[in-house]
C-alpha cells in the first residue's frame, strides 16, 4: 500500500517535534549561558529591553517572510523604514501648526503607511511586469530609498516633533511590555493567522513551492506576488513609523542595518530561501535569538560587534541543520 519509510509513530513524533522546535532549544541555550555569566539577565528589565529591541526585527521579519516564502527576497525593507521615517516625520512637523498635534500625527502615520504600500506596489510591478529578479528589483529600490531619505531633509534627522509621540511610543504595560512590543506581537499574530489559515497564505506557500503549477491552477500569480511585496513594504513602513514614536525623531539612517537581520530571523526560524516553507513561530524565535544576542552581550559588557559574528554563525548553522532535516525528510 505504501512506499513511505515508516517510523514507529512515537519515534516519528519525537523526531518531528525535535526537528520543528530545536531552534527553541538554541534560544534557551543562549539565554541560559547569558544567565550563568550574568545573573542579572534573569530579570524583568532585561526581558523588557530585549522585547523592545526585538520589535523592529520582528515586524520586518514577519513582512519579509511572506516574500521569502515565495522564493523571493526584499532588500528594501530597511531603507523603507528610513524613507518613511523622514517622510512621515516631515508630514507631522509641517502639519502641527496647521491642524494641531493629534491630526498631524495621524496624517503622518497615514502618509508613512501609504508610502510603504506604494513602494511595495512598485517592487511588485518591477518583479512581475518588468520580470526582474526580486533581488535586483529590491536592491535597486533600496538604493533609491536610501538616497530619497537623505534628499527629503538634506540628510538630517527630522527633529522638533511633538513630545507626545515619545510618550505614546514608550508607554509600559504591566511594567515591562512597551507599546511597540504590543504592536509587533499583534502584527506577528495577525499575519501568522493569515499565513496559516487563509487562502492568501495557502497561495503564498503554493507559489513558492512551484509558481508555474500555481498559475496553472488558475490563480493570478502576478497579482498575488504584488500583494506579498506590499505586505513586506507596508510592515516595514509601520516599523519606520514606530521608530518615530520611540525616538521622537525621523532619521534617514533608520533601518540601515536591519534588513539582513530581519531576513536572518526568518531563515534562522526555518523559512526556506528556496520557497514554499516556513512558519511564523520560527520567525519569532529567530528574531528573539538575534535580539537576545545583542542585549545579552551588552549586559556582559562585550562589544556588540560580537553579536554580528554570532548571528552570522547561527545563520549558517541553522540553515545547515535545516538542510540535513530536509534531506532526511525526503529520503
Amino acid at each position: 500500500m505504501s512506499d513511505i519509510k515508516e517510523f514507529s509513530p512515537a519515534k516519528r513524533r519525537m523526531y518531528m517535534l525535535l526537528s520543528e522546535y530545536w531552534i527553541v532549544l538554541v534560544f534557551l541555550l543562549i539565554y541560559g549561558i547569558f544567565i550563568i555569566l550574568e545573573p542579572l539577565c534573569f530579570s524583568l528589565p532585561f526581558l523588557s529591553s530585549t522585547l523592545n529591541y526585538m520589535t523592529e526585527i520582528l515586524i520586518l521579519g514577519v513582512g519579509v517572510m511572506f516574500v521569502v516564502i515565495t522564493a523571493g527576497i526584499d532588500l528594501s525593507i530597511g531603507p523603507v523604514e528610513g524613507a518613511v521615517g523622514v517622510g512621515a516625520a516631515l508630514t507631522m512637523r509641517s502639519l502641527v501648526p496647521v491642524v494641531g498635534v493629534p491630526l498631524a500625527i495621524t496624517a503622518g502615520v497615514i502618509v508613512g503607511i501609504l508610502m510603504g504600500m506604494v513602494i511595495g506596489l512598485l517592487n511588485g510591478l518591477i518583479v512581475t511586469k518588468m520580470k526582474l529578479a526580486p533581488f535586483i528589483a529590491t536592491l535597486g529600490m533600496s538604493v533609491i530609498l536610501t538616497g530619497s531619505g537623505y534628499i527629503f531633509n538634506n540628510g538630517l534627522e527630522v527633529v522638533g516633533l511633538p513630545k507626545v509621540l515619545a510618550r505614546l511610543g514608550n508607554m509600559q504595560f504591566f511594567g515591562f511590555i512597551g507599546t511597540t512590543t504590543i504592536v509587533a506581537w499583534t502584527v506577528w499574530l495577525i499575519f501568522g493567522i493569515i499565513l496559516k489559515h487563509t487562502r492568501f497564505g495557502v497561495i503564498t506557500y503554493a507559489y513558492g513551492s512551484n509558481p508555474e503549477s500555481t498559475a496553472r491552477a488558475g490563480i493570478n500569480v502576478d497579482r498575488h506576488l504584488i500583494k506579498v511585496f506590499m505586505i513586506s513594504s507596508t510592515l516595514a513602513a509601520l516599523s519606520g513609523v514606530l521608530l518615530i514614536f520611540r525616538f521622537n525623531t525621523g532619521s534617514p539612517i533608520a533601518g540601515a542595518n536591519v534588513t539582513l537581520y530581519a531576513i536572518a530571523s526568518c531563515i534562522i526560524g526555518g523559512t526556506s530561501v528556496l520557497g514554499g516553507r516556513g512558519k511564523m513561530i520560527g520567525t519569532l524565535i529567530g528574531a528573539a535569538i538575534i535580539s537576545i544576542l545583542v542585549t545579552g552581550l551588552v549586559m556582559l559588557g562585550v562589544q556588540t560587534y560580537w553579536q554580528q559574528v554570532a548571528t552570522g554563525l547561527i545563520i549558517i548553522f541553522s540553515v545547515y541543520a535545516d538542510q540535513l532535516r530536509q534531506r532526511n525528510a525526503f529520503m
Partner: peptide, 16 residues
C-alpha cells in the same frame, strides 16, 4: 503534473 510539492495532498487538490 503541475503540483506544489511543499503542500499536502488535500491543498493541492483544492489549489485555486
Amino acid at each position: 503534473l503541475a503540483l506544489a510539492p511543499d503542500l499536502p495532498i488535500y491543498s493541492n487538490m483544492f489549489l485555486g
